[in-house]
Protein backbone atom coordinates (compact mmCIF):
# COMPACT_ATOMS: atom_id res chain seq x y z
CA UNK A 1 0.00 0.00 0.00
CA UNK A 2 1.19 3.47 -0.85
CA UNK A 3 1.61 5.66 2.16
CA UNK A 4 -0.17 8.95 2.01
CA UNK A 5 0.78 12.00 3.99
CA UNK A 6 -1.78 13.64 6.25
CA UNK A 7 -2.97 16.12 3.59
CA UNK A 8 -2.26 14.08 0.51
CA UNK A 9 -5.08 12.53 -1.41
CA UNK A 10 -4.89 9.94 -4.13
CA UNK A 11 -6.22 10.98 -7.53
CA UNK A 12 -9.47 9.11 -7.22
CA UNK A 13 -10.02 10.64 -3.79
CA UNK A 14 -9.49 14.09 -5.30
CA UNK A 15 -12.09 13.37 -7.95
CA UNK A 16 -14.54 12.20 -5.32
CA UNK A 17 -13.99 15.33 -3.22
CA UNK A 18 -14.47 17.62 -6.21
CA UNK A 19 -17.52 15.71 -7.35
CA UNK A 20 -18.96 15.82 -3.86
CA UNK A 21 -18.75 19.60 -3.95
CA UNK A 22 -20.71 19.76 -7.18
CA UNK A 23 -23.21 17.24 -5.90
CA UNK A 24 -23.60 19.22 -2.72
CA UNK A 25 -24.27 22.48 -4.59
CA UNK A 26 -26.79 20.74 -6.80
CA UNK A 27 -28.49 19.05 -3.88
CA UNK A 28 -28.65 22.20 -1.84
CA UNK A 29 -29.77 24.72 -4.42
CA UNK A 30 -31.54 22.65 -7.02
CA UNK A 31 -32.80 19.34 -5.72
CA UNK A 32 -33.55 20.77 -2.27
CA UNK A 33 -36.03 23.46 -3.38
CA UNK A 34 -37.55 21.01 -5.83
CA UNK A 35 -38.17 18.46 -3.10
CA UNK A 36 -39.46 21.20 -0.82
CA UNK A 37 -41.92 22.22 -3.52
CA UNK A 38 -42.90 18.60 -4.08
CA UNK A 39 -43.45 18.26 -0.33
CA UNK A 40 -45.55 21.44 -0.15
CA UNK A 41 -47.74 20.37 -3.04
CA UNK A 42 -49.44 17.81 -0.81
CA UNK A 43 -50.82 20.34 1.69
CA UNK A 44 -53.61 22.83 1.82
CA UNK A 45 -53.37 26.56 1.29
CA UNK A 46 -54.02 28.68 4.34
CA UNK A 47 -54.61 32.44 4.04
CA UNK A 48 -52.62 33.16 7.19
CA UNK A 49 -49.90 30.53 7.39
CA UNK A 50 -49.80 30.07 3.58
CA UNK A 51 -49.19 26.31 3.96
CA UNK A 52 -51.30 24.31 6.32
CA UNK A 53 -49.38 21.12 7.03
CA UNK A 54 -51.99 19.52 9.28
CA UNK A 55 -53.53 17.41 6.51
CA UNK A 56 -51.86 15.54 3.66
CA UNK A 57 -53.99 15.80 0.55
CA UNK A 58 -54.02 15.20 -3.20
CA UNK A 59 -56.56 17.91 -3.86
CA UNK A 60 -54.08 20.31 -5.47
CA UNK A 61 -53.28 17.75 -8.16
CA UNK A 62 -56.95 16.91 -8.53
CA UNK A 63 -57.65 20.58 -9.06
CA UNK A 64 -54.96 20.92 -11.72
CA UNK A 65 -56.38 18.00 -13.66
CA UNK A 66 -60.10 18.60 -13.16
CA UNK A 67 -60.64 22.33 -12.97
CA UNK A 68 -61.33 23.50 -16.55
CA UNK A 69 -59.11 26.55 -16.15
CA UNK A 70 -56.02 24.54 -15.19
CA UNK A 71 -56.84 21.69 -17.53
CA UNK A 72 -56.76 24.22 -20.33
CA UNK A 73 -53.46 25.47 -18.98
CA UNK A 74 -51.85 22.04 -19.18
CA UNK A 75 -53.27 21.33 -22.63
CA UNK A 76 -52.42 24.79 -24.01
CA UNK A 77 -48.88 24.66 -22.67
CA UNK A 78 -48.37 21.29 -24.28
CA UNK A 79 -49.85 22.33 -27.63
CA UNK A 80 -48.09 25.69 -27.77
CA UNK A 81 -44.68 24.27 -26.80
CA UNK A 82 -44.94 21.32 -29.16
CA UNK A 83 -45.98 23.53 -32.04
CA UNK A 84 -43.26 26.06 -31.29
CA UNK A 85 -40.64 23.29 -31.11
CA UNK A 86 -41.73 21.72 -34.40
CA UNK A 87 -41.90 25.08 -36.16
CA UNK A 88 -38.54 26.05 -34.78
CA UNK A 89 -37.09 22.75 -36.01
CA UNK A 90 -38.52 23.11 -39.51
CA UNK A 91 -37.55 26.75 -39.72
CA UNK A 92 -34.06 26.46 -38.25
CA UNK A 93 -32.86 23.21 -39.79
CA UNK A 94 -32.18 24.80 -43.20
CA UNK A 95 -30.52 27.76 -41.49
CA UNK A 96 -28.26 25.48 -39.48
CA UNK A 97 -27.53 23.38 -42.57
CA UNK A 98 -26.57 26.29 -44.80
CA UNK A 99 -24.46 27.74 -42.01
CA UNK A 100 -22.17 24.71 -42.29
CA UNK A 101 -21.43 25.72 -45.87
CA UNK A 102 -20.39 29.26 -45.05
CA UNK A 103 -16.80 30.45 -44.88
CA UNK A 104 -15.54 31.52 -41.48
CA UNK A 105 -16.26 35.25 -41.80
CA UNK A 106 -19.76 34.86 -43.20
CA UNK A 107 -20.41 32.29 -40.51
CA UNK A 108 -19.36 34.66 -37.74
CA UNK A 109 -21.74 37.32 -39.03
CA UNK A 110 -24.58 34.82 -39.42
CA UNK A 111 -24.02 33.57 -35.89
CA UNK A 112 -24.26 37.14 -34.60
CA UNK A 113 -27.54 37.66 -36.45
CA UNK A 114 -28.90 34.38 -35.16
CA UNK A 115 -27.98 35.30 -31.61
CA UNK A 116 -29.83 38.65 -31.65
CA UNK A 117 -32.97 37.32 -29.92
CA UNK A 118 -30.74 36.44 -26.97
CA UNK A 119 -29.09 39.81 -26.81
CA UNK A 120 -32.06 41.93 -25.90
CA UNK A 121 -34.36 41.74 -22.93
CA UNK A 122 -37.17 39.35 -23.77
CA UNK A 123 -39.65 41.88 -22.39
CA UNK A 124 -38.51 44.40 -25.00
CA UNK A 125 -38.62 41.97 -27.90
CA UNK A 126 -42.04 40.77 -26.81
CA UNK A 127 -43.43 44.29 -26.92
CA UNK A 128 -41.71 44.85 -30.25
CA UNK A 129 -43.45 41.76 -31.59
CA UNK A 130 -46.69 42.98 -30.11
CA UNK A 131 -46.52 46.18 -32.16
CA UNK A 132 -45.56 44.28 -35.30
CA UNK A 133 -48.41 41.83 -34.83
CA UNK A 134 -51.30 44.22 -34.11
CA UNK A 135 -54.25 44.04 -36.53
CA UNK A 136 -52.91 47.17 -38.26
CA UNK A 137 -49.26 46.18 -37.77
CA UNK A 138 -46.60 45.48 -40.36
CA UNK A 139 -47.12 41.72 -40.50
CA UNK A 140 -50.85 41.92 -41.11
CA UNK A 141 -50.45 44.75 -43.60
CA UNK A 142 -47.90 42.74 -45.52
CA UNK A 143 -49.94 39.53 -45.52
CA UNK A 144 -53.01 41.44 -46.68
CA UNK A 145 -51.16 43.33 -49.37
CA UNK A 146 -49.93 40.13 -50.98
CA UNK A 147 -53.41 38.69 -50.66
CA UNK A 148 -52.77 35.69 -48.42
CA UNK A 149 -55.40 36.90 -45.99
CA UNK A 150 -58.35 39.26 -46.38
CA UNK A 151 -58.84 40.09 -42.75
CA UNK A 152 -56.12 40.76 -40.18
CA UNK A 153 -55.04 37.83 -38.05
CA UNK A 154 -55.46 38.46 -34.35
CA UNK A 155 -52.17 37.58 -32.70
CA UNK A 156 -52.56 39.11 -29.27
CA UNK A 157 -54.21 36.78 -26.84
CA UNK A 158 -54.10 33.82 -29.22
CA UNK A 159 -52.05 30.66 -29.29
CA UNK A 160 -50.62 31.57 -32.70
CA UNK A 161 -49.18 34.76 -31.27
CA UNK A 162 -47.62 32.93 -28.34
CA UNK A 163 -46.20 30.26 -30.64
CA UNK A 164 -44.65 32.90 -32.91
CA UNK A 165 -42.99 34.73 -30.08
CA UNK A 166 -41.68 31.46 -28.62
CA UNK A 167 -40.25 30.36 -31.96
CA UNK A 168 -38.49 33.70 -32.22
CA UNK A 169 -37.17 33.67 -28.66
CA UNK A 170 -35.67 30.20 -28.75
CA UNK A 171 -34.50 29.96 -32.35
CA UNK A 172 -30.86 30.66 -31.43
CA UNK A 173 -30.74 27.61 -29.16
CA UNK A 174 -32.25 25.34 -31.78
CA UNK A 175 -30.05 26.66 -34.57
CA UNK A 176 -26.82 26.41 -32.64
CA UNK A 177 -27.48 22.90 -31.38
CA UNK A 178 -28.51 21.72 -34.87
CA UNK A 179 -25.52 23.45 -36.41
CA UNK A 180 -23.11 21.78 -34.00
CA UNK A 181 -24.50 18.40 -34.93
CA UNK A 182 -24.55 19.07 -38.68
CA UNK A 183 -21.04 20.45 -38.48
CA UNK A 184 -19.94 17.04 -37.22
CA UNK A 185 -21.12 15.20 -40.31
CA UNK A 186 -18.08 14.33 -42.38
CA UNK A 187 -18.61 15.70 -45.92
CA UNK A 188 -17.36 12.35 -47.20
CA UNK A 189 -20.68 10.77 -46.14
CA UNK A 190 -22.47 13.16 -48.45
CA UNK A 191 -20.01 12.50 -51.25
CA UNK A 192 -20.38 8.76 -50.68
CA UNK A 193 -24.16 8.99 -50.93
CA UNK A 194 -23.97 11.04 -54.12
CA UNK A 195 -21.50 8.81 -55.89
CA UNK A 196 -23.64 5.78 -54.97
CA UNK A 197 -26.47 7.39 -56.91
CA UNK A 198 -28.38 9.55 -54.44
CA UNK A 199 -29.70 12.88 -55.67
CA UNK A 200 -29.87 15.91 -53.37
CA UNK A 201 -33.19 14.97 -51.86
CA UNK A 202 -32.21 11.35 -51.30
CA UNK A 203 -28.87 12.38 -49.82
CA UNK A 204 -30.65 14.67 -47.42
CA UNK A 205 -33.35 12.23 -46.43
CA UNK A 206 -31.22 9.11 -46.19
CA UNK A 207 -27.94 10.44 -44.87
CA UNK A 208 -27.94 14.00 -43.56
CA UNK A 209 -31.24 13.82 -41.71
CA UNK A 210 -30.66 10.51 -39.91
CA UNK A 211 -27.13 11.53 -39.01
CA UNK A 212 -28.36 14.73 -37.44
CA UNK A 213 -30.89 12.94 -35.21
CA UNK A 214 -28.80 13.48 -32.07
CA UNK A 215 -28.86 17.21 -32.78
CA UNK A 216 -32.58 17.19 -33.54
CA UNK A 217 -33.25 15.35 -30.28
CA UNK A 218 -31.06 17.69 -28.22
CA UNK A 219 -32.41 20.82 -29.91
CA UNK A 220 -36.03 19.72 -29.56
CA UNK A 221 -35.70 18.78 -25.91
CA UNK A 222 -33.97 22.06 -25.16
CA UNK A 223 -36.51 24.15 -27.08
CA UNK A 224 -39.51 22.32 -25.68
CA UNK A 225 -38.24 22.70 -22.15
CA UNK A 226 -37.56 26.39 -22.60
CA UNK A 227 -40.91 27.01 -24.29
CA UNK A 228 -43.01 25.27 -21.69
CA UNK A 229 -41.25 26.96 -18.79
CA UNK A 230 -41.06 30.34 -20.48
CA UNK A 231 -43.19 32.89 -18.71
CA UNK A 232 -42.53 36.47 -19.74
CA UNK A 233 -43.01 36.48 -23.54
CA UNK A 234 -46.10 34.24 -23.48
CA UNK A 235 -47.51 36.49 -20.79
CA UNK A 236 -46.98 39.66 -22.84
CA UNK A 237 -48.29 38.06 -26.03
CA UNK A 238 -51.05 35.90 -24.61
CA UNK A 239 -52.04 38.05 -21.68
CA UNK A 240 -54.11 35.97 -19.35
CA UNK A 241 -56.32 35.04 -22.26
CA UNK A 242 -54.17 32.12 -23.38
CA UNK A 243 -54.08 29.93 -20.30
CA UNK A 244 -50.58 28.56 -19.84
CA UNK A 245 -49.07 26.58 -17.01
CA UNK A 246 -46.04 28.79 -16.57
CA UNK A 247 -48.21 31.91 -16.29
CA UNK A 248 -50.58 30.16 -13.90
CA UNK A 249 -47.72 28.99 -11.68
CA UNK A 250 -46.50 32.58 -11.56
CA UNK A 251 -49.98 33.77 -10.61
CA UNK A 252 -50.41 31.19 -7.85
CA UNK A 253 -47.07 31.79 -6.26
CA UNK A 254 -46.41 35.50 -6.79
CA UNK A 255 -49.90 36.95 -6.86
CA UNK A 256 -52.12 34.66 -4.81
CA UNK A 257 -49.31 33.30 -2.65
CA UNK A 258 -50.93 29.88 -3.00
CA UNK A 259 -47.75 27.85 -2.65
CA UNK A 260 -49.33 24.40 -2.48
CA UNK A 261 -51.34 24.76 -5.69
CA UNK A 262 -48.48 26.55 -7.45
CA UNK A 263 -46.12 23.77 -6.41
CA UNK A 264 -48.48 21.07 -7.65
CA UNK A 265 -48.78 22.79 -10.99
CA UNK A 266 -44.99 23.20 -11.22
CA UNK A 267 -44.59 19.49 -10.53
CA UNK A 268 -47.08 18.72 -13.29
CA UNK A 269 -45.13 21.01 -15.62
CA UNK A 270 -41.92 19.19 -14.75
CA UNK A 271 -43.60 15.85 -15.37
CA UNK A 272 -44.78 16.98 -18.79
CA UNK A 273 -41.20 17.99 -19.64
CA UNK A 274 -39.77 14.67 -18.45
CA UNK A 275 -42.45 12.76 -20.32
CA UNK A 276 -41.69 14.70 -23.48
CA UNK A 277 -37.94 14.08 -23.13
CA UNK A 278 -38.69 10.38 -22.85
CA UNK A 279 -41.06 10.42 -25.84
CA UNK A 280 -38.65 12.34 -28.09
CA UNK A 281 -35.74 10.09 -27.20
CA UNK A 282 -37.58 6.84 -27.72
CA UNK A 283 -39.06 8.07 -31.00
CA UNK A 284 -35.60 8.93 -32.25
CA UNK A 285 -34.24 5.60 -31.09
CA UNK A 286 -36.97 3.67 -32.85
CA UNK A 287 -36.68 5.48 -36.14
CA UNK A 288 -32.92 5.64 -36.44
CA UNK A 289 -31.24 2.93 -34.45
CA UNK A 290 -27.52 3.53 -34.05
CA UNK A 291 -27.83 7.03 -35.42
CA UNK A 292 -24.86 8.56 -33.72
Amino acid sequence: MKKLGPFRLSNSAKIIVLLLLAVLVYALFFLGPLLWMFYNSFFRWDPLRLVDRSVVTMENYLKVFTHPLYQTGVINSFIVSTAATLLSLVFNFPVAYYMTKLKSQARAITTMIILTPMMTLSLVTSYAWLTLLTPGGLVNQFLMSIGIISEPIIFWGTRIGVILVLVYSFSPHMTLVLNASLENIDPNYIKAAQILGANRFQTFYKVILPMSVPGIVAGSILTFTMCISSFLSPYVMGGRVVKLMAVQVFDFISVQLNFPLGSAMAIVLLSVVLLMVYVIRSLAEKKFRGGT
Binding site: N188, Y189, A193, I195, G291
Partner: peptide
Protein backbone atom coordinates in the same frame (compact mmCIF):
# COMPACT_ATOMS: atom_id res chain seq x y z
CA UNK B 1 -17.52 3.61 -57.42
CA UNK B 2 -15.51 5.49 -54.82
CA UNK B 3 -13.65 4.26 -51.74
CA UNK B 4 -12.59 6.87 -49.21
CA UNK B 5 -9.51 7.05 -47.07
CA UNK B 6 -11.70 7.10 -43.95
CA UNK B 7 -14.15 4.59 -45.53
CA UNK B 8 -17.19 6.88 -44.92
CA UNK B 9 -19.46 3.95 -44.14
CA UNK B 10 -22.86 5.28 -43.06
CA UNK B 11 -22.78 4.86 -39.28
CA UNK B 12 -26.56 4.70 -38.96
Amino acid sequence: GLVFQNYALFPH
